[in-house]
Design a protein around this nucleic acid. Sequence first.
DNA 1: TGTTTTTTGAACGAGTTTGATCATATTGTT
DNA 2: AACAATATGATCAAACTCGTTCAAAAAACA
Lengths: 261, 261
Amino acid sequence: MPRVDRIPPQRHAAILEHLRANGAASIQELTGALAASPSTVRRDLDYLAERGYVERTHGGATLSASSTEVESSITSHIAQKEKAAIGRLAVSWVKANMTIIFDSGTTVLEAARAIADSNLPITAVTNDLGIAQILGSNGRNQVIVPGGTLRPGSQTLLGNPGAAFLRGIHVDLAFLGTHAITDNLLTDSSLDLAEVKRAMIEAARHVVVLADSNKFGPTCSFDICTLAEIDEVISDSRLSDMDRTATEAHGVKVSIARVGE
Amino acid sequence: MPRVDRIPPQRHAAILEHLRANGAASIQELTGALAASPSTVRRDLDYLAERGYVERTHGGATLSASSTEVESSITSHIAQKEKAAIGRLAVSWVKANMTIIFDSGTTVLEAARAIADSNLPITAVTNDLGIAQILGSNGRNQVIVPGGTLRPGSQTLLGNPGAAFLRGIHVDLAFLGTHAITDNLLTDSSLDLAEVKRAMIEAARHVVVLADSNKFGPTCSFDICTLAEIDEVISDSRLSDMDRTATEAHGVKVSIARVGE
DNA sequence: TGTTTTTTGAACGAGTTTGATCATATTGTT
DNA sequence: AACAATATGATCAAACTCGTTCAAAAAACA
């Protein structure tokens, strides 16, 4: 018998607000404040605890030491399942103690999430604040942030000192995102982003591009590189055979992540 | 016959708060203050003693000598209301289009939250991932992250390239956090953190330390600087007159944030 | 519109926390 | 040194929380 006064994100926000004001809250308190049943409150707290916003305790929860609004509830749920599948498959490229560059973007973020769950210890280099937090939240990984200026409306750092820093490192692997793969070109919608990505490609011995099938076809204004400069692409099962063979024709290995699993 | 008015972490926090105020506490006192039975108080004290926060004595407990280094898992939210009040007051130091350094830590984070809510556009420099996200989430601010290696279990970046970057900038204002203010010294629990804070002090024309009243008294291992090198302190109304006059005696202006607002 | 998927609230057994009780140990006083 | 007063730790039942399951209600989808 659901009686929905608020949708889940509203409840989550209200809980976080309550916690921020008081530092801790009991289930009873929240049940009253949200006009929801204890079961729902418990589910909400579990949800928030899973992503590190709060710490669960008997009878309630406390504010997690490192809680911020990492999650942009705005993230387009378009192709979410595909991105998650790509992220899970990306784990098989990772071996313990590798040093890996993580580009910004939601697909790469899913890969970071999967790798954090995999318990493989790595050294990560990333300019994405959300990815840095995910990889840093389990104490196993060393996380290095090159730094830069936050790109408005995103979680990505651009420019210096990060750009200069990237030119001085060499890593095993880079997981790259892109806005569009057209023909022989990887392109992006921001000149600064494209420049950072180029630096990442230079710094990595092996470059893997994570791109859901929607990225194939459209084109953006700013070139990152040609397909010849990357080694592999991971995409999802909705990639057309045409796009796949066109990509492979440039010497790039294409792997497909299946959503079911 | 349990009658849960507070969940365990809230009781633990309240006990530590009580101990910090009085140095010691009897079981009777705590029984009254927590509205819990002596058995429960004893169990709580045993819990806190096991992890080194307090020392058990007959009839009560005292504050453990080395409690400031370890804390934050339990005490991170004890002075939540005070920290929020300090953060709100900090907004009055901010003018539009200032460039401001934000140190890491929960108190400074509250200031960032208040400033983000205030709609004043600023340029922010911070090595705290959470603060960067808060200030970046409203599109008004320019946010610069110097970069570095993520400190395990926190949201703070340490080391290079950020340290070098900080040495090359000059800003209007710095909001600094600290783990302890003793006598004439600001100290912190990590050598690297202390070094970053020193660099921030060097880079700022005006240094404001945000420290709730619990930070006064205890001491940590690593010196940041003497009080002479900072300009102001913002604390809460539970700051003792003794600590206040001692701080002002070193030429530091002390402002008090009222919780009621 | 009808169907599928997700979300919600209730119910139940299992596990945890809490407060009272009581024999024992500790402290302070005579 | 003996005594009274109090704190302690163990034990136990009551109350509460937890995780799971399940059916009904929304929401999403076709």
